[in-house]
Design a binder for these strands. Structure first.
Lengths: 361, 361
DNA sequence: GTGAAAGCGCTAACAC
DNA sequence: GTGTTAGCGCTTTCAC
């Protein structure tokens, strides 16, 4: 709380302004001996003020330490010049560039960015989104955590522009920008198959997350298309918690018919898998969904199916601003391609498959 | 722009609300047949409304799709329940966790976070900060890009709570939370010296960045304290651009008296140095300032002087909220310790030093 | 319990 | 050129 009306030793105390309560246009007008509207004109750089008057107003502004209160301006104008971004975790290496890209687009349109992390909690997502609606942000970009976004219907009906990104909304028809999760995963798994693998494990994120489900579908499609069976122990969706991933990976690599390759469903799972494989007795092939920094410096360098998180964010934000500028056509669904990047780990030959004659170990 | 007054095919259109212009408390009051203040009481969960009245108000709220306009509330109450964070780059792996930590503290205090990236541009920093002041955020957390923050004096004098983090403000006395950059760098370089190195190169960030300067001082102090000379070609501050870092690293490793170890001034420099060293003929020791993901999986694993970016953010945000709650003592300077994490690269012996007899190559 | 009136600080509309 | 008035949608004050 600003220490209202109290005098303190430190700090510059602008002449005429009470400490903690800022001068208003009215104060500036009084000091400059002009009308309120004239101050407004000067502050907003509008035409029709004589140079001398303008000068006097500027002096008063400086003397009083005046700064326009945008809260009042916003209330009057009806637009906040800000957009909201709700995602899972601002600090996640996948979402951080997405967030930054949204910020850049917002900046190009003169808008500020308010963002919040849902921590993968649907209730927290809802609270955040509705708080942003109450603030009357001009638009919303949402990476959904929940699976039912009907709570947004009244908001959208009332004019709140909303674009979903990375994952589709639940039970709601709205704009969405996605990566081609199914196709990307299928390509990654097919790549392993092309290098001779028949026993491939899938470790993914929680099955209720749409992207995770799509990637699992891609894995299954690639296996099926190659005429390969998917054994029960080879599919392990679940949390990205390191202990869980480690346990599943270790289990798949053990026994008398271990997998010879792993396909991992996102960056966090991949990193844990790399750690497990680093301690493993013989080489196991690996392709991960999502690129990550230093993947090329590991040994072996990690092959990935790369998304472009910044492009996801940029595309979503640009779509949002197109809506704000009036584009009123039906909700759009944009899918961005993924890119397979072979670096070494995905090109390792199968080792230890009892059914295939390959490099001995 | 919400399509004001226009009717469209999609979307739920709440009864009685014009499309694009939302119902107000007045509308709700009219519909419920009560006074404005009663609606306000219900919306804010205040005492003194009979159950039947409350029921009627709730029905009207639902029917109209009413949501309180916080812009108006903010104007009236004088507090925005939001804080601003300005930093260099939201997507940087060092700043992303800092930002997330600030967000969590804000959330705990019921505040939203508005953040912006300055892109290391003082003018952009100033614009962002002043835009946040105009919005009357309750407080500011700033990772400064500029070196003169006197522009903030009137704002601080008028009651804007401000905490600087990671780097000190320029020409302004204000709260600041820093890492012990000097001590951390000195410890990192002393570690290399303790492992036999006498020819150690320093590649840092731009010299005008306070943290970069402090780390350089730490390097020089460690060298001096060990009675070692610092040859002209061994110190290379500059941009974190990969080409620049690569060129300087390559130069230091060439010639007839190359360095046997590198100390790198931040995470981005370290990563580029790792790439250069990976392609180098013989082992070169490396200690980097800042920890980074997967440092332990590289070969050799990278020894670092680690900061705790989340702790920096948390500490700064908590200090900010203490100020908002009224703490009015003199500006505080908090320094958080760094931690040396030996992983392998910093413990490699010197190779190729003509003055020292060590492992041949 | 409830509500009418004033006003937060600005901009829009319309005087002069 | 300049100033006056009426709101934006809420909360606050105070009367009923």
């Amino acid at each position: 709380m600003p220490d209202s009306g109290r005098t303190t030793a430190r700090g510059h105390r602008p002449d005429g302004a009470r400490y903690g309560s800022r001068p208003t246009m009215k104060d500036v007008a009084a000091r400059a001996g002009v009308g309120l509207k004239t101050v407004s004109r000067v502050v907003n750089g509008e035409q029709g003020v004589s140079p001398e008057t303008e000068q006097r107003v500027h002096e008063a502004i400086t003397a009083l330490g005046f700064r326009r209160n945008d809260s009042a301006r916003i209330l009057r104008k009806g637009r906040t010049a800000s957009i909201g971004l709700v995602l899972e975790d601002l600090a996640d290496p996948f979402y951080a560039p997405l967030s930054r890209a949204v910020e850049e687009v917002a900046r190009a349109h003169g808008a500020l960015l308010i963002n919040g992390s849902s921590a993968e909690d649907p209730e927290r997502e809802r609270e955040l989104v509705l708080a942003l609606c109450a603030r009357r942000v001009d638009g919303l970009v949402i990476v959904p955590a929940g699976h039912d976004h009907r709570y947004l219907e009244p908001e959208i009906a009332a004019g709140m522009a909303t674009v979903f990104v990375d994952r589709p909304p639940g039970r709601l028809d709205a704009d969405v920008v996605l990566s081609e999760n199914f196709a990307g995963a299928r390509e990654g798994v097919a790549h392993l198959i092309a290098h001779g693998h028949r026993r491939i494990g899938f470790i993914g994120d929680q099955a209720h997350i749409p992207t995770a489900a799509e990637r699992l579908r891609g894995y299954e499609a690639a296996m099926t298309e190659a005429g390969l069976p998917v054994l029960p122990g080879w599919v392990a969706p679940g949390s990205t918690d390191a202990a869980r991933v480690r346990a599943d990976a270790t289990r798949m690599l053990a026994g008398d018919a271990p997998v010879t390759a792993l396909f991992t469903g996102n960056n966090r799972v991949t990193v844990t898998a790399v750690r497990v494989l680093a301690g493993h007795a013989h080489p196991v092939a690996l392709v991960g969904f999502d690129d990550f920094e230093l993947a090329d410096l590991l040994s072996p360098p990690v092959s990935v199916v790369a998304q472009d998180p910044a492009q996801l964010g940029r595309t979503a934000a640009e779509l949002l601003f197109r809506r704000l500028e009036g584009a009123g056509d039906a909700p759009r669904r944009v899918a961005l391609p993924t890119r397979l990047i072979p670096r070494g780990s995905g090109e390792l030959p199968p080792v230890g498959d009892p059914d295939v004659r390959t490099a001995a170990w």
